[in-house]
Nucleic acid binder design. Structure first.
Lengths: 124, 124
DNA sequence: TTAATGCATGAACAGATATTCATGTGTTAT
DNA sequence: ATAACACATGAATATCTGTTCATGCATTAA
């Protein structure tokens, strides 16, 4: 209880201020990190997640989504625009309706992974 | 090639504007969606991802991180504050240094999942 | 043809967030 | 004791982002 260093790996570099940046383990490249961040950012909006959850199971048009999610048509449409831009959804036009469907299953896998994670451990 | 409805499931409800919200499949509850969004939001910042990538392999102090990532001490410290608030990192004080280490492996799993995903498919 | 519907979109606005800057606290070195 | 160092933090700032509002376009209904 007194030894705070108890469970720490002892082979840690302990560089501490070598001031030579190359002495440190290579960090994730900023550009790649930014692309990952953008990807996670897609899932970092509650309404977008709810749209994804619906479009994963069912093909729905904009009006359907706005009713089911109690959002405005415009808000839904804007969200779908971003999902479209990243090819996460496909859509087909039928008359004056536009039906959307989730295209990228990988995104849905991630969605489910985190959903289960939050169920077991209250992340807060 | 002419049938746009080719690969669409035919048992789709096609509700379209039933105007009864309960007629639609239940959307992810807004509160839960928000918690998921917050979780993804944690990973939606390039510098935070780079911090996570370093702390997953190595125990480092604030100064180390700021040098390795070419960020200001203050910016790093602020980021660590948010990671700390969510119990994603542990830290131990040693003299005037504070060493940080990634605590939540689940986050790192997600990190790696997306990292690999971006490697194979250029998401843009 | 005219009106109404479904959707898209640009601009404006509001809220969130990451960084910098200034400052404070505690520790080590001189 | 005094100075330098490592880190934390509040405030201010700038940027990003999601929604609303107004409008436009295409399609269907009257």
């Amino acid at each position: 209880m007194t030894d705070v260093n108890l469970n720490i790996l002892d082979e840690e570099p302990q560089l501490c201020e070598s001031s030579d940046r190359t002495a440190y383990p290579p960090a994730l490249a900023l550009e790649k990190a930014q692309r990952m961040a953008d990807f996670f950012g897609l899932l970092a909006d509650a309404n977008r997640l709810r749209i994804i959850s619906l479009l994963a199971d069912t093909e729905l048009c904009v009006g359907d989504l706005s009713i089911a999610l109690e959002m405005s048509d415009s808000a839904v449409s804007h969200q779908l625009k971003t999902l479209r831009a990243l090819r996460l959804v496909r859509y087909r036009k039928q008359g004056r309706h536009v039906f959307y469907q989730l295209l990228d299953r990988h995104v849905f896998d991630l969605y489910n992974t985190v959903l289960e994670h939050l169920d077991e451990s209250a992340i807060e």
